[in-house]
Each structure stands twice: as structure tokens, then as C-alpha cells.
Computed example of a mutant assay.
Amino acid sequence: MTTVQYGGGPTIEQRRAFVNLRPGSHIPGYAGFNPQLKFNSGKTYGEQTAELSKSFPHKRMVDIGAALDARKGGASAACQQAGVAEAQGLRLPKSTGDNKYIDGMLPGYTGYVPTLINRFGGTYRNLCDESVDEFVRNYEHREDKATDLKRASTAFPQLASLRGDPAVRDHLNFWADRKPRADGKRQNLEPPIPGYQGYVPRVYTTQAGLGCRYHEMTRNGLEMFNSETKSGSARVATARPACGREPVALDGNRVYQQEGMKPAYTGYVPRRRFNFGHTYGETTRNLPVCQHSYPTYGNYVRSLTAN
């Protein structure tokens, strides 16, 4: 351990004098970025960085001695930076403890800075100052526009409500009385407009659409489908079941009907998995859950236990 760790040791001026560094040069061993350093050779690290600091004054290293003299004179680095920002016309808010974008953004901040991603070729401090200035100006511009709009809207007189106006009421009643009303469900015979990409039955599976416009093609397909649906419903209503039973009226309380289940029914049917060799409809008609004539299957089971 050295005396420096206990607060003693040489001062900064003594250390700089011992290393013998020129103003603007970095201490040998500094691993940060130095502009154009990799394109120069033949000189020591301190001499080369001192010459580069003259070529790039906006990237000049901090002179510790000058900073100490300025601090002793009462001028801080923050005040100098604020003076530079005011000279450039930048609007940089002061830090209040709650605001995030302020003047003097420290390098190493990994958060989001507005419009910083679109800026290149400068130091982090300068680019952040320009980004924060643009953000503040845009925010103030939007606030001014919102204030102007609010002021303009309040300047005009408030519109009166027309809800109780007799003329408006009579006009609405006139329109409602003459509006066409559909009696029941409308049949699906109206052809769609050209450009409709949905499904139209009996158009592409038949010859109804050959040599016709889209309007005529869809109208022919819908009329063909409607006639086939009506004829099929009439045949189902007049046909008798193959087993000879009388058709039973549908009961809203029964899930498994006496005439059997439709082949497309994918629900559970008791004891269906133990029957083979018949069609789906014939199998479900022969099952006890469908074969009984009681309103519910529970009533059927209670009648068996009562007997």
C-alpha cells in the first residue's frame, strides 16, 4: 500500500510534472478512442496525442491544470458548458431531478435519446445537446399549436343542440316511415357486387357461370342453390324413415333425438364406440339414448328402475 490510498502522496501538479506531459496529451495506457491515432507513427503516445489535440480542437483533452485554475477563479465546467450552449442558441433544460433530457449528458448513458440515432460525426456530448435541443423545440412547437387550437375553438360560439328541434324530429319521422322494412328473413338471392371474393354456391362446380357476366353468373348460382335447397327440404319432409317409425317432433329438452343423429355430429353419443357394421344414423337410432320416446333420457332411466 502507498500513502496515496490514505490521502497522502503527490498532488496532481506534481504527478503531471513527473510524467512531463504536454498540454492536451493523454497519459500512456489510456485505452479510449483517439482520432486518427492509428494513422500516425514515429512518436511517443504523449507527443502524438498532444499534436492530434491541436488538429481536433473539439476533441481536445481536458487540461487539468487549467480546470483547477478556473475552479479557483469561480468558473466551473458546467457554467462554461452552459455558456457554450447559450452561444450556440441551444435550448437545454436544467436538471431538476425529475427530467431525463438535460444539458450536459454524460457519456456512458445507455438510455434512449430522441433523434440521436440519426446523428453522426461528433462527440456524445455535442450530439446529445443537439438532440435534446431538437426534442425541446418540437415539444414546444406542438404545445403552441395545441394552445392555438384550443384558443380558436373557444373563440367560436357553442353550437346549440338540435335534439328538441321539431323540424329535425319531423324529418327523422318522415325518413323512418318511408324506409323499406323487411318482412322476415330475406332470401339469399341478391347477387354480390363485382369484385366480391367470397364463396358463391353452384357457380364454379356447374355450368351456370359460362359465358356470363359476374352479376349474371352469381344470380344463376344462387337461384340454382335456392331451388335445390327447397326441393331437398320437400323430399325430407315427405320421406319416411327406413325403420318404419313415425317422425317424432323435435323436443327442445332432448339432445339425442329418436330419429337418430346427423352423420356430421361430432359430439359424444353413449355406447356408440361399442357398435360396428352400421351407418352412423342407423347405429344412433338403435341406441337406448335415442330409441326411447320419453322427453329426456333421465325419465327413461327412471321408468326402467320403477318397473
Rank of each mutant, 00 (worst) to 15 (best):
Y6D: 15
G8E: 13
L21F: 05
S25L: 06
P28C: 04
G29H: 07
Y30S: 05
G46N: 08
E47A: 08
V62M: 13
A82S: 09
V84Y: 12
V84K: 11
D98Q: 10
I102E: 06
M105P: 00
Y112V: 06
T115V: 05
I117R: 05
F120R: 06
R125N: 03
S131R: 00
D133K: 00
E134P: 01
V136G: 04
A146C: 08
R151I: 11
P166E: 12
V168Y: 13
R169S: 09
L172N: 13
R178A: 06
Q187M: 09
P191K: 00
P194H: 04
Y199V: 06
Y199D: 11
R202M: 15
V203D: 01
L210K: 11
R213V: 11
T218H: 04
E223R: 04
E228D: 14
T229H: 08
A239N: 10
R240G: 09
G244R: 05
E246K: 06
V248W: 12
V248G: 04
L250D: 14
R254D: 05
Q258V: 07
Q258T: 08
F274G: 04
T279R: 05
T279K: 05
Y280T: 05
T284W: 01
N286G: 12
N299T: 09
Y300S: 02
S303I: 03
